[in-house]
């Protein structure tokens, strides 16, 4: 058997083919679990999709590199479950493209941080964490309150997400920019239509405490406040896997 390898090394074409075969085995083993992904992701018909404002917040979360210090996955370990709540299920990241599970926790896990703290706390804390937690080493993201949110391309973001399987409707995509404004301004006439499109559980309020401007802070806080709130699947331990 090892004599075969000795001879193979002396045959350039044969060696290249053998490398392709061996590397192919490795690739196959990485890809193969995806063949049965429909069977391993739990089914939840009530799974919500991110609103345009939450998508914008998620993009800011990625832009600012929050994932470098915060994971979004509660692992199947007793310590994790005791501290953060029920372990994360695959279905909870079903519409996350890309997923933001992370593997590094300089700060705490954020998978269930939605509704844990108030909007005012999130806004003040993102603006300067040390105003509230003196020993915090999290950077201050002061520009989030200053920067107006860019909304005109949100429809395109939704359309792109639909391409990879998030069930956005044409209506959602067409109204993305209006919906983003409406979600942070509860008094506008567009708010009821937003709630109708995305469900009554949608948070519609002034996330950064200022209704006059739609800032990046509005978007990021709106996103943080739905983490772990898109489905209650994790609170039903014996949810059937699809079959």
């Amino acid at each position: 058997m090892f004599g075969l390898h000795y001879n193979l090394e002396r045959n350039a074409i044969g060696l290249v083919l053998a490398i392709v075969v061996v590397a192919g085995i490795g690739g196959f083993i990485e890809i193969a679990p995806l063949f049965t992904i429909d069977e391993t992701v739990e089914q939840d018909a009530d799974m919500r999709v991110y609103t345009p404002l939450e998508v914008a917040g998620r993009n800011i979360y990625i832009r600012e590199g929050c994932y470098a210090c915060h994971s979004q996955m509660i692992r199947t370990l007793r310590d994790d479950v005791d501290r953060y709540g029920p372990y994360s299920l695959a279905v909870e990241s079903q519409y996350d493209h890309p997923m933001l599970w992370g593997s590094k926790r300089t700060g705490p896990d954020l998978a269930r941080v939605g509704d844990k703290y108030s909007d005012a706390w999130n806004t003040a804390h993102l603006n300067n964490p040390r105003d509230l937690v003196p020993e915090s080493k999290m950077p201050a993201y002061r520009w989030l309150l200053r920067n107006e949110l860019k909304t005109e391309d949100l429809g395109l973001h939704l359309a792109a997400l639909r391409k990879v399987g998030v069930p956005y409707t044409d209506e959602m995509i067409a109204n993305a920019s209006i919906d983003a404004y409406a979600q942070a301004n509860p008094d506008t006439n567009d708010a009821p239509a937003l709630a109708e499109r995305y469900g009554d559980a949608t948070h519609i309020r002034m996330f950064d405490g200022d209704g006059a401007r739609l800032t990046e802070m509005d978007a990021l806080v709106a996103y943080l406040q739905v983490l772990g709130k898109m489905t209650d699947a994790a609170y039903q331990p014996d949810l059937p896997e699809a079959q």
């Binding site: 193969a32 049965t36 069977e39 199947t76 372990y87």
Partner: peptide, 21 residues
């Protein structure tokens, strides 16, 4: 090992979710 409709569950029946519960 993945199969056509399911995956091979292993002889030991290990299940991390059951373990953590």
């Amino acid at each position: 090992w993945p199969g056509i409709n399911d995956y091979f569950r292993g002889l030991l029946g290990a299940d991390q979710q059951a373990e953590v519960r």
